[in-house]
Design a binder for these strands. Structure first.
Length: 974
RNA sequence: GCGGAUGUGGUGGAAUUGGUAGACACGCAUGCCUUAGGAGCAUGUGCCUCCGGGCGUGAAGGUUCAAGUCCUUUCAUCCGCACCA
C-alpha cells in the first residue's frame, strides 16, 4: 500500500516567524490525549443523571485474527462523532463496546493449530482494543462485555431456560449437513459448493434432533411494530418479506378411493375451479400411501433424488420443472372432478402443508408444470376492465350480468373488421349468449349474422383468454357486467351478403392490423387484441378479474370470491381460512465446541430438563482436541456429559449442542446497561433507564441479527423485564468503504488499507476519521482515496496554523460584524447537518469556514477572533477530537472540551444588511441585484426592471407578469 | 421474477420546502516563494461559442413564470430475497 506522507509546516516565506510556532503534529498530540482520556475515565456513563440519557453504539464485532478493517473504523467514526456531539449537547451518553466472541473461525483455527479458542480470542480482543484506542473512540470501557465469558453466557443460558419454560424453546427433527467421510456435522459456512471444507467430499443432509426457538409465535407482533420503527426502509421491507405473512385458506381434498385427506394451503381459494391437478412435496408424509405397484419404483427414485439434492444443485438446475405421478387421484371439492396427484420438488415441504392445488391457468409455476406433463389447463379468471368516461357504469342504472362471445373477424390477409357505432364505440363484433344458443360457437355464428351479416365462415378458433368488463350503456339505460371469450373468425369478404337486420344502427369497417389497437375504444377489447397478437389462449399473468368456468361463482369479482369460496367450503367442512408465514422457527443447535452449551440435561424418566439457575453457567469444558468425531467435541467429554437429573437425581446426560452465536448477540444491548450484575442478566431498573438504544449503527445483517434482537426483546417485554417492546429506536445503516480501485477491500486482492498504517504515516487519527466521514453520505458506499485524505489533513493543518497565528499576533480591539455573522452561520449549518447525520456537508461547512477566516485574516487579528476560533474548535470536536482538545487548551481553557456546551447561534446575527436578488427574464438569469434587506417589493421590482441587461431583454414590450419571491428572485415574463 | 435504492463536471460529492445547478474536496492549469517539491500561498477550472450568448442533472414527454427537485413513459447500474402456492 502506498501512503502519502504529509510534511510539517515549514515555509520558505517568513521562516523565522513560522519556526517560533508550534507545528501540527498528530503523532505527538494524539497519544497524549488518548492517555489522558483513559486515565480520567471521563467517558464512563453514569447510571443516574439529571441529563437526558443517550445510548449509542455500533454492532459489536467478531474479534477476528485479521484485526479491525476500515469498515470497523468507519462505523466507529460515525458512532463516536454522534456520541461526542450528543455529549456536548448536554446528554448523559453511553457508548459501550463488546465482543461477539463465539464463532466458527476461532474453532477452525483451533482445529488447524491446536490453539485454544479462548486464547486466540483473547489475543484478538487485545488487538482490536488497541486499534480502537488509537482512533480516539470515546468508549465506556467499564461496560466491556465478551460473549464467551462464563459471566456473560451464564445469562444467555438463563434466557434459554426461561424460553424453554415458556414453550419458546423446543426440540424437533431437522436436516443438517453431514460429511460422510469426516463423520461430522457441518455448518453452512463449512460447506463449499456442496463439498466438505476439510476433505472436499460431497456432503449430504442428515436428519437429527435439534433445538429451535419459536420465533413464529412472534411473527405478528414483530410485523405489527415494523412500520413504527425509525429504521431504513430497506431493512424494514426486508424483514417484512422475510416474515412473509400470507392470508389464504386450507382446503381438504379427498383422495379418490381412499380414506385419506390431502390438505393444501392456498392464497387463492377463489381459483379452486381451475385446480386441475395436485402437487405434493417430496418430503410429504402421505407419499407411501398414494403410490401403487406401478408407480412405487419411479416415485421412490424421484423422492430419494430430490432429498439428496443440495441447494446448489437445485439452483443450477434453474426452474426447470421435474416431477412424477403418484398413481392416485384427488377429488376437487368444488366441482367433484377427479384430478391427479403428482410429486414435485417445486413444492416445498416446509411451507404451508407441503401440498398445493395446482391452478395452471393463473400460476406460472403450475403452468410450466402442466405444459411439461401435458396436464389440462382451465381458465377461471377473466381480466376485467371498468369503462371510464361515457362508458362508466352509473349508479342509477340496473346492472345486467351476462356471458358474451366476441369475434375478431379477419380476411386472413391482415385486415380486421371493426364495428363502428360512433366515435366512442368502436369494437369487435359480438354479443350475449342467449338461452336458445346450444353452444358458445352457435351464439357466435348467430351474432355475426345478426350484427354484420356474414354467413360464409372459413374457420373459427378460440383466440384469447376470457376477458370481462363492466360498462354503462346510455343508449340502453343499463350497466352491463360481461365476461366472455374472443374467437378468431376467418371470412372471405368477397362472397358475403349484407344482412338487413339491424341495418342503419351501425357501420362496419375493414382496418389494417397495425391500426386496430388505436381504433378500439374499449379497454377490454384492447387487452384481448394484445393477447390475440401474442397468440395466447391462457394468460397466466391474469391474477384478478371476474371468475369464469366457476359454477355459481361465475361473474364474481375474484377479490370478493376469496371470502365467499372459503365460506362455501367451510359450510361443507372441507376448508377454513388460514394465515401462513414464510419465516420458520429459528434453529439454534450447533454441533460445535466454541459456543454457549445448551443448558439441558436429558433424563430417561423426565426427558429434557433445564439446568436450574443455581447450577448455571454450564461451563464449556477445556479440551485438548478440537476436531469433531462423529458428534460434536463435547459429546466425547464423558466426564462432562455424564451428570444427574435435576429432577430425580438419577444418572442423566448433558445436551452436547451449543447455541447459535446469534443467541449471544440477541441480548447484549441490554447487558451493557448492567454489565457486572452477578445475580441477574440485568436489573429492570437499569434497563428502564437505558432502554431502548437511541441509535444503533451497522452495515451488515438485514434480517438475521436485527430480527432476532427484536424477537428476544419482545419476549423480555412480555416477561416484564424491559420497558419497551422494541430494543432499537433508530437504526443507522452505513455503506462500505471500498478500495481505491472501487472493488471490495480484501486480502486476496491486495488492496486493503490498514487504518493504523494511515495514522502512523503522519496523517493521524483525526484526519482519518474526518476523511472517512467527508467521503460522502454515510449510508452509501464510497471509495478510499490516498489523495483525498491529504486534503483533509491540509484542512486540519490550516485550522491549526490559523489558531497559532492568532495566538501570537498583535491584536487590535476592533469588533467585526462580518466575522460574527460568518461564525453564527457556520454554527447553524454544522449543527443542523450533524442532526440529520449529514457529516460530509458539516465538514465541508467547516472547511469553508476556515477558508473564509483566512480571507478575513488579511485585515489582521483582533480580540473579536477569540470567540469564532473557539466555536471552530468546538464544532470540529466530534470529528477530530484530539486537535480540538489541544487547541481548546491553547485558547486558554483548562476544562474538558467534551462537556462544554455546544455553541448556539443567534439568527439575528446571521442576517446581513443586504441580500442578493436574482432577476430572471423568461426563466433565464439576466441580472443580480444587491438590495437592502428591508427593501420593499415594489422598490425591488422597479430596480430589477431598471437593470441595463434586463431592459435589453425586455425591450419595449410590456411584461405580462412580474413575480417576486421574497429575498430570492424577481421573475419577469414577457 | 419480486422488493429496495441510485443515476448531477475529469473524480468523490453539494443543492433540507419547486426559486442563481455544480458548495466542499480531489485532480488539472497558471503564477508566487532568490536550491528542490509528493510542501506552502494566490488565482482559475461544467460544455460549446462568431464572446452577443447558447447548451447542460441517464433518455423522452408533460405541469409551471420557474423543474436535479413534481407527474407519465423508458433505459442503465447496484443491493437484498428468490419455485413460499
Amino acid at each position: 500500500m502506498q501512503v502519502n506522507r504529509p510534511h510539517p509546516v515549514v515555509s520558505g516565506c517568513g521562516l523565522l516567524y513560522y519556526q517560533m510556532m508550534k507545528r501540527y503534529n498528530p503523532s505527538e498530540i494524539e497519544p497524549k490525549w488518548q492517555q489522558l482520556w483513559a486515565d480520567d475515565k471521563r467517558y464512563q456513563a453514569a447510571d443516574t443523571s439529571t441529563k437526558p440519557k443517550y445510548y449509542v453504539t455500533g454492532m459489536f464485532p467478531y474479534p477476528s485474527g485479521a484485526g479491525m478493517h476500515t469498515g470497523h473504523f468507519f462505523e466507529h467514526s460515525i458512532v463516536d462523532a454522534q456520541a461526542r456531539f450528543m455529549r456536548a449537547q448536554g446528554n448523559n451518553v453511553m457508548y459501550p463496546m463488546g465482543w461477539d466472541a463465539f464463532g466458527l473461525p476461532a474453532e477452525n483455527y483451533a482445529i488447524k493449530t491446536g490453539t485454544a479458542p479462548k486464547d486466540s480470542t483473547k489475543t484478538n480482543i487485545a488487538n482490536f482494543t488497541n486499534q480502537l484506542n488509537r482512533v480516539g473512540a470515546s468508549i465506556d470501557w467499564s461496560r466491556e462485555i465478551t460473549t464467551s465469558d462464563p459471566e456473560y453466557y451464564k445469562w444467555t443460558q438463563w434466557v434459554f431456560t426461561e424460553f424453554f419454560k415458556r414453550g419458546l424453546a423446543y426440540q424437533k427433527e431437522a436436516n443438517q449437513w453431514w460429511c460422510p467421510v469426516d463423520k461430522t456435522v457441518l455448518a453452512n459456512e463449512q460447506v463449499e459448493a456442496g463439498k466438505c471444507w476439510r476433505c472436499g467430499n460431497e456432503v449430504i443432509k442428515k436428519s437429527m434432533k435439534q433445538w429451535f426457538f419459536k420465533i413464529t409465535d412472534y411473527a405478528d407482533a414483530l410485523l405489527e411494530e415494523t412500520p413504527n420503527l425509525d429504521w431504513p426502509e430497506k431493512i424494514k421491507t426486508a424483514q417484512t418479506n422475510w416474515i412473509g405473512k400470507s392470508q389464504g385458506a386450507e382446503i381438504d381434498f379427498a383422495v379418490d378411493g381412499r380414506d385419506e385427506l390431502l390438505t393444501v394451503f392456498t392464497t387463492r381459494p377463489d381459483t379452486i375451479f381451475g385446480a386441475t391437478f395436485m402437487v405434493i412435496a417430496p418430503e410429504h408424509p402421505l407419499i407411501s400411501q398414494l403410490v401403487n405397484d406401478d408407480t412405487k419404483a419411479t416415485v421412490d427414485e424421484y423422492v430419494a433424488n430430490a432429498l439428496k439434492k443440495s441447494e446448489i444443485e437445485r439452483q443450477s438446475e434453474g426452474k426447470e420443472k421435474t416431477g412424477v405421478f403418484t398413481g392416485s387421484y384427488a377429488i376437487n371439492p368444488a366441482n367433484g372432478e377427479k384430478i391427479p396427484i403428482w410429486i414435485a420438488d417445486y413444492v416445498l415441504g416446509g411451507y404451508g402443508t407441503g401440498a398445493i392445488m395446482a391452478v395452471p391457468a393463473h400460476d406460472e409455476r403450475d403452468y410450466e408444470f402442466a405444459q411439461k406433463f401435458e396436464l389440462p389447463i382451465i381458465q377461471v379468471v377473466a381480466a376485467h376492465s371498468i369503462g371510464s368516461g361515457r362508458d362508466a357504469p352509473r349508479d342509477e342504472f340496473e346492472m345486467l350480468h351476462r356471458p358474451v362471445v366476441d369475434a375478431i373477424i379477419t380476411d386472413g390477409e391482415g385486415n380486421f373488421l371493426l364495428q363502428i357505432e360512433n366515435e366512442h364505440h368502436i369494437h369487435f363484433v359480438g354479443g350475449g349468449i342467449d338461452d336458445t344458443d346450444d353452444t358458445t360457437e352457435a351464439a357466435l355464428r348467430r351474432e355475426i349474422i345478426e350484427e354484420v351479416g356474414l354467413t360464409e365462415i372459413i374457420s373459427i378458433k378460440q383466440a384469447s383468454p376470457f376477458s370481462s368488463g363492466t360498462y354503462g350503456r346510455e343508449t340502453k339505460s343499463r350497466n352491463q357486467k360481461v365476461w366472455g371469450t374472443f374467437f378468431e373468425v376467418v371470412v372471405d369478404p368477397k362472397i358475403q351478403v349484407d344482412s338487413e337486420i339491424e341495418q342503419g344502427l351501425h357501420s362496419i369497417e375493414w382496418v389494417k392490423k397495425e391500426d386496430v389497437e388505436h381504433r378500439l375504444t374499449w379497454e377490454g377489447h384492447r387487452a384481448a387484441w394484445k393477447s390475440y397478437l401474442a397468440g395466447r389462449v391462457i394468460d397466466t399473468e391474469v391474477r384478478e378479474g371476474l371468475l369464469v368456468n366457476s359454477g355459481v361463482f361465475d361473474g364474481t369479482q375474484t377479490s370478493d370470491a376469496r371470502e365467499q369460496v372459503v365460506a362455501w367450503l367451510e359450510e361443507q367442512g372441507v376448508g377454513r381460512a388460514k394465515t401462513t408465514y414464510k419465516m420458520r422457527d429459528w434453529l439454534i443447535s450447533r454441533q460445535r465446541y466454541w459456543g454457549a452449551p445448551i443448558p439441558i440435561i436429558h433424563c430417561d424418566e423426565h426427558g429434557a430438563v433445564p439446568v436450574p439457575e443455581n447450577d448455571l453457567p454450564v461451563l464449556l469444558p477445556e479440551v485438548d482436541e478440537y476436531e469433531p468425531r462423529g458428534e460434536s467435541v463435547l459429546a466425547s467429554q464423558t466426564d462432562w456429559v455424564n451428570t444427574t437429573c435435576p429432577e430425580c437425581g438419577q444418572p442423566a446426560k448433558r445436551e452436547t449442542d451449543t447455541m447459535d452465536g446469534y443467541a449471544c448477540s440477541s441480548w447484549y444491548l441490554l447487558r451493557y446497561a448492567d454489565p457486572k450484575n452477578a445475580k441477574q442478566p440485568w436489573s429492570t431498573e437499569l434497563a428502564n433507564y437505558w432502554q431502548p438504544v437511541d441509535m444503533y449503527v451497522g452495515g451488515d445483517h438485514a434480517v438475521a441479527h436485527l430480527l432476532y434482537v427484536r424477537f428476544w426483546n419482545h419476549v423480555f417485554h412480555d416477561m416484564n423485564l424491559v420497558p419497551t417492546k422494541e430494543p432499537v429506536k433508530k437504526l443507522v445503516y452505513h455503506g462500505l468503504i471500498q478500495a481505491e480501485d472501487g472493488r471490495k477491500m480484501s486480502k486476496s486482492l491486495g488492496n486493503v488499507v490498514d487504518p493504523l498504517e494511515v495514522i502512523d504515516a503522519g496523517y493521524g487519527a483525526d484526519a482519518l476519521r474526518t476523511f472517512e466521514l467527508f467521503l460522502g453520505p454515510i449510508n452509501e458506499n464510497s471509495n478510499w482515496s490516498s489523495k483525498g485524505i491529504a486534503g483533509v489533513y491540509r484542512f486540519l493543518n490550516r485550522a491549526w496554523t490559523l489558531t497559532q497565528e492568532y495566538l501570537e499576533a498583535e491584536k487590535t480591539d476592533e469588533p467585526n460584524a462580518e466575522l460574527v455573522a460568518l461564525e453564527h452561520r457556520t454554527i447553524k449549518k454544522v449543527t443542523t447537518d450533524i442532526h440529520r447525520l449529514s457529516f460530509n456537508t458539516a465538514i465541508a461547512a467547516l472547511m469553508e469556514y476556515v477558508n473564509e477566516l483566512y480571507k478575513l485574516k488579511v485585515d489582521g487579528f483582533s480580540e473579536a477572533w477569540q470567540q469564532p476560533l473557539e466555536s471552530l474548535v468546538q464544532l470540529l470536536q466530534p470529528f477530530a477530537p484530539h486537535i480540538s482538545a489541544e487547541l481548546w487548551q491553547q485558547l486558554g481553557h483548562n476544562d474538558q472540551l467534551d462537556f462544554v456546551d455546544w455553541p448556539t447561534w443567534d439568527e439575528s446575527l446571521i442576517v446581513t444588511d443586504t441580500v442578493t436578488i436574482v432577476v430572471q427574464v423568461n426563466g433565464k438569469v439576466r441580472a443580480k441585484l444587491e438590495v437592502a434587506a428591508d427593501a420593499s417589493e415594489d422598490d425591488i421590482k422597479a430596480q430589477a426592471l431598471a437593470e441595463e441587461n434586463v431592459a435589453k431583454f425586455v425591450g419595449n414590450k410590456k411584461p405580462t407578469k412580474v413575480i417576486y419571491v421574497p429575498g430570492r428572485l424577481v421573475s419577469i415574463v414577457i
